Amino acid sequence: MIKEFHYKFEELQITEKDMAPLLGFSENIPEPFPQYIEQSFAKAPELCTIKGGYHFVSEIDTKPDNSTIIIAKKVFNPTKAVSTQLKKAQQLVLFVCTAGEGLSQHARAISNEDPMLAYVFDVLGSVVVEKAMDKIQEQLQKEVAQQGLGISDRYSPGHCEWSLTDQVNLFSFFPDNFCGIQLSDSLIMHPIKSISGIIGIGEGLKPRGFQCQLCKDQNCIYGKMRRQ
């Protein structure tokens, strides 16, 4: 079963506080960034095409000892840090979500004229897709709670040292161009401000937040945010 969601920018209720970590600030955002953020928020509604969705799969076999998850006969090879967190899952949800092309295209268009503002628009694209996926995850959590079940955190290829090669299997569970997202030959999603991954469903599962102590990736943006 596949479910699809659409959001307007205003529904995400993004604030300066959401932007700060990805801009490299912990709390107080120095000038001129507040005015740039305000400009990006004002233009974002016309630039965003926010879509996402998920696919329930109950045919799974999780083997944390060898970091393999078999989903409907397709073999995924996340790291042990991921498979261990999903070992109690009774079902898995595969998801994709995108902010659309608009924010990235606008950032490129103004990059020579105003590189700092372009950077803020680019960061906003990253924040939009994560906040949209937060809303989708909240909806999923409410849905499975009616059955007495919980959900895990979400895990994505490219994070927690999980190879991007599993993107091919993940996207095979969705129709072509689902939510306007395409997977390139180099396994990069287009629009670039898109995310994909897996969430576990099962009794006693609950989101625990970034488990950075289980991951060795020092370049991960989420790990950097947590360390800040």
Rank of each mutant, 00 (worst) to 15 (best):
N169K: 15
L117R: 01
I50D: 03
W162E: 01
K73H: 13
Q167M: 12
T84F: 09
K80A: 12
C179S: 08
E143F: 05
L86E: 07
G148R: 13
L170F: 07
G52C: 06
C160A: 11
G52N: 04
C48M: 07
A109I: 06
T84V: 12
F121H: 14
Q146S: 11
S184F: 08
T84E: 14
G158A: 04
K135Q: 12
F178Y: 14
N66Y: 15
W162R: 11
V82G: 03
G100R: 04
V129F: 03
N177Y: 10
A107F: 06
S172K: 12
F56T: 07
A81C: 10
D176Q: 15
L183I: 09
E101D: 14
Y54C: 02
K87Y: 11
I60W: 03
A89E: 09
K87V: 14
L124H: 03
I60C: 07
N169V: 08
I70Q: 10
L94M: 09
G102W: 05
S184M: 09
K88W: 11
P175T: 05
E101C: 05
E130R: 15
T68Q: 09
F178T: 09
A109N: 13
L117P: 00
D65E: 15
F178H: 12
Y155R: 05
Q85P: 06
I71F: 05
K131I: 00
Q105M: 08
E143R: 14
D153N: 15
C179D: 01
L94A: 02
Q146K: 14
C179K: 00
V75G: 03
P175Q: 03
A132I: 12
F171M: 15
G52F: 00
L103E: 01
F56R: 12
N177P: 05
N77F: 09
D61G: 09
N77T: 14
K131Q: 11
Y119F: 14
I71M: 06
S152P: 07
S186T: 15
R154P: 06
P78F: 02
G102Q: 08
K51D: 07
V127R: 08
S83F: 07
K131N: 11
N112A: 12
S172C: 08
T84L: 11
M116N: 13
L140D: 01
A99R: 00
S152W: 01
F95A: 04
C160H: 10
E138L: 10
K88R: 13
T84C: 10
I70R: 09
I71S: 02
